[in-house]
Design a protein around this nucleic acid. Structure first.
Lengths: 341, 341
DNA sequence: GCGCTTACTGTAAGCGCTTACCTATGGCGC
DNA sequence: GCGCCATAGGTAAGCGCTTACAGTAAGCGC
């Protein structure tokens, strides 16, 4: 079947055509099921393909069809399990649809974002799903004008051609904060995320909830956690210094909540005994932490499916009907919150 | 500069050549820095490129050069933070080298693995890094014979053309188990991973350590955890049933250790008071769990860099000198282990 | 002034596909 | 038996690059 070790030329459509005694056009039509081809020829072609071990060269195909059956995913940090869950969801759908996925992690770096976006154009990727975007909307617009399908997962780029699908961050942050308020907490700290739109939204939701409960926001109660365990840990240490009377904290994501819990415990306090904590994301993991984490769930899988579906639709030429898709977050009560002492 | 909204044809190398008053060959040479180009022409070409906003079409380029500047990464589950860390390391290097990365998650499914491998060939990806492989070696061999560079991250496929770079799993498992033994534990359970080579290796290391300490392995002390939190949790519940006298457990990875801790605590026992637990991986997260996890560290970053470097070298035509690269694991002592009561 | 380099540059042939366009064939209604 | 249409399949022109090959001009030693 194959001479092991021989690095012979891979068979092309010409080889198949010759062996099957037809033209390349017919082979192409048979293989792609476009146009009609008589049964006997089809059989001959299949046999030739089989015998030669022929696989169409998708590069050549892409050159003429201008489609690569590939989408790209830009996100800040694959190491964050929430993004990983998103990727898993996206991958599941791309697999179904015979698309392939290029992964680009940008670390909230606008230079890198633009570099990747340009690269993706050059590679003629069919479209992109972008998350953690920090590039100014007008620079994104340049790509969109060019006819490059993009769907955003976290920020409105105020272009009618770029749909946004995400969870309602402000609402979620409000739910978390209200939960703590309703338990009786008043000194509620916030561990903010990395400087990006979603962090602002969550901060805003937190502040709004405090205000509407008559609690004046105190800047000593806010620290930066950067969405990581380490960041959350360090932020918590700082908060414990700057506001030792805090009784609760709303962390911008589960990872920083986990870091914060570690810091709280290390300081000799207990969760939720001395301080209650609520996260954001509802990682698969968060059900298993000690204590299991009360958190705001965002439906990673639905976001993944919906956005990918939308992007694939745009690639196929469909205009998105709805430009904003806000998923409703859900408060998941577990054991990291309770009434203050 | 650009007429917004007009979906005009993207400029090609011909447009640049015409505008700069040179041939396409010269443009190509100037842009790729191959062959000599007189300074004035170079300037004219740069100006034309700038004016037209020209970006070379990499598809067309790939068709002739037979290189795509893309590598693929096959792994079982991106949702596992260890793999995510690996991806981050690989991505960092590919970025440096102007390569791009296709991500394929296979979920330990051999069908999917083969499907992806075939797809990668068709897409003319330059090479692949594969992890969590369950496909029989001979099927992998087919791709390798074809001259497709592959480096494995977890299993020897016994082909001289396929390097393996991984941590010494058996050694690591031995270290974990010996640690537990040295603390005085005798009833040591094991939560095994998903059915794959690394799980076997870790099981073997565990058993060997027990035996050389004169403890006879007991099948009631082994349960399947599938490398996930849920799996670890369920396995632990089963173990608590089948061997309630256990005092320690070695989990095949950190994620299942976290699940196990949750189960132990839920059963009214404490970690490490009633049962000690050691994981494997040393996720970034594991330092922050409650209690912080004693674990066997595998150097994700080094594995990532080394394997990628190797693959890129193979793509450039270099033969790997060493075919096996075993990293030495390191036992990280934290707070989830102590002497039995 | 001649032959030989050396430095540039252009011409054109592909890379492996898809597809517009055209031709041939056979069935069918009359 | 003829015109017409549907069906099948071939021809060849690209898609946008790279690069082998050839050619020109300038520089140089003698």
């Amino acid at each position: 079947m194959s001479t092991p070790g021989s690095r012979r030329r891979r068979p092309t459509i010409y080889d198949v055509a010759r062996l099957a005694g037809v033209s390349t056009a017919t082979v192409s039509r048979a293989l792609n099921d476009t146009g009609q081809v008589a049964e006997p020829k089809r059989v001959a072609i299949d046999a030739a393909v089989e015998q030669l071990g022929y696989r169409p060269n998708t590069i050549a195909r892409s050159l003429v069809t201008r489609a690569t059956q590939t989408i790209a995913l830009l996100l800040p940090d694959i190491t964050n399990p929430f993004y990983a869950e998103l990727v898993a969801g996206i991958q599941a759908l791309t697999l179904e649809r015979d698309y392939t996925m290029l992964l680009c992690t940008t670390g909230f770096d606008p230079e890198l974002e633009e570099r990747y976006l340009r690269l993706l154009r050059a590679k003629h990727v069919d479209g992109a799903l972008v998350d953690g975007l920090v590039l100014p909307p007008e620079r994104i617009a340049r790509f969109v004008e060019d006819g490059f399908p993009i769907v955003c997962l976290d920020r409105d780029v105020s272009s009618p051609a770029v749909p946004l699908v995400q969870v309602d961050n402000r609402l979620g942050a409000g739910m978390a904060t209200e939960h703590l308020l309703s338990l009786g907490h008043r000194r509620i700290a916030h561990i903010a995320g990395a400087p990006a739109r979603i962090s602002e939204e969550r901060l805003l939701g937190y502040q709004a909830a405090l205000e509407s409960a008559g609690v004046t926001p105190d800047s000593a109660l806010v620290a930066l956690g950067a969405f990581t365990e380490t960041g959350g840990h360090d932020a918590m240490c700082a908060l414990l210094e700057s506001a030792p009377d805090l009784t609760a904290v709303f962390a911008a994501n589960d990872l920083s909540a986990i870091g914060a819990i570690n810091a709280i415990v290390a300081s000799g306090r207990s969760v939720p005994g001395d301080v209650s904590i609520v996260g954001f994301d509802d990682l698969r993991l968060s059900r298993f932490t000690s204590p299991p984490l009360t958190t705001v769930r965002q439906p990673a899988d639905e976001i993944a499916r919906h956005s990918t579906e939308l992007l694939l639709g745009m690639i196929a030429g469909r205009k998105p009907r709805k430009i904003h898709h806000l998923f409703v977050p859900e408060l998941i009560l577990r054991d990291s919150t309770r009434t203050p002492r």
